[in-house]
Computed example of a mutant assay.
Amino acid sequence: MDLSLYYETELEQWISSRYIQHGILCPSDLDIDEVSTAFKVDLVEYEGPPFSCNMTDVIFLPKGIDTLTKRLVYFHELCHVLRHAGNQRQMPELFLQQQEIEAERFIQYAAAPFYMIKELPLGESQKEAVELIASEFTLPYKFSYARLLQIQNRILNQITAQENARIPGGNRNERDAQELCIQSEETQRIMTQLSRQLSKGVKKLWQE
């Protein structure tokens, strides 16, 4: 897998740039307490569901939540703090949905940044690569699999775009291919399913 062919979305570039500016350079730097300190975000654990306040830069996480789920929920809320404005409890439903969609995309890039992944010895085995990503970034296996699949698909799209560009009369250029093929249907399905599972799990934990 030629990682040099991978291209980042604007959101991914924004996250990578902010991370590097704050000295977040390797997986061990992604400890949520350290990330919170770097971005001057207060982290509070309490008896209730997760939420954040982008006016005071505070993230509230449920007490007792397991480590893997906690990290994904944290990065979801971090997106709201760093990139969003307004009170979600009072904003129009469409605007709320747009923020939630971006927050789910944010998790993929913030929890496992590509500039860190490319430094790992991923090897040729997909299973070993997924296990390495899950271990290095302290993430669920399913999430790590979806992230690797996303990277592989992005690279495949780039190769396809380059091949189409060489064919006379090709009906798509490189930029079109990038925009049309950001994620495969399989990657989107896995991410959506995982998001729903996390949401239900956190809600159940709070209610128990």
Rank of each mutant, 00 (worst) to 15 (best):
R71W: 07
H84S: 03
R175D: 13
G169A: 08
S199A: 15
V35H: 13
E174K: 13
Q99R: 01
R154V: 12
L94W: 08
A177N: 14
F60N: 09
L120K: 00
T67A: 06
Q90L: 13
E208P: 02
A146D: 06
E136S: 07
L30K: 14
C53H: 04
E10Q: 11
Y145L: 15
L3S: 10
I20P: 12
S135N: 03
G169Y: 06
I65P: 04
T69S: 15
Q162N: 13
K40S: 12
F114S: 03
A110F: 03
N153K: 12
Y109W: 05
C53D: 15
Q150V: 02
G123F: 09
S16E: 15
P92L: 14
Q207H: 15
L139P: 05
I167E: 12
I182G: 00
E119V: 02
V81I: 09
R196Y: 15
A85W: 07
G86W: 00
E93F: 14
F75G: 01
K118V: 12
D33Q: 11
E10K: 09
L96S: 01
E208A: 10
S16N: 13
F114L: 11
A165R: 06
V58E: 02
D42W: 03
A85V: 01
Q88D: 01
R154W: 02
E12P: 01
A134D: 02
D57S: 10
G23C: 12
G201W: 09
C26V: 13
Y145N: 12
F39W: 13
C79N: 11
P92Q: 11
C53T: 02
F75H: 01
I117E: 10
M91K: 02
M191G: 02
Q162A: 10
A165K: 10
S36N: 03
W206A: 11
R166P: 04
D31K: 08
P27F: 08
D29K: 11
Q152E: 11
Y109I: 03
I59G: 04
A111T: 03
Q88T: 04
Y109N: 00
M191E: 01
E100I: 01
G170V: 08
A134E: 00
I32R: 07
E179I: 00
A146F: 09
S36Y: 07
E100L: 07
A134F: 03
R154Q: 03
S195Q: 14
L72R: 05
G123T: 04
L139R: 04
I15G: 10
E77Q: 14
I32P: 05
G169M: 07
K127W: 02
L148N: 14
T160S: 08
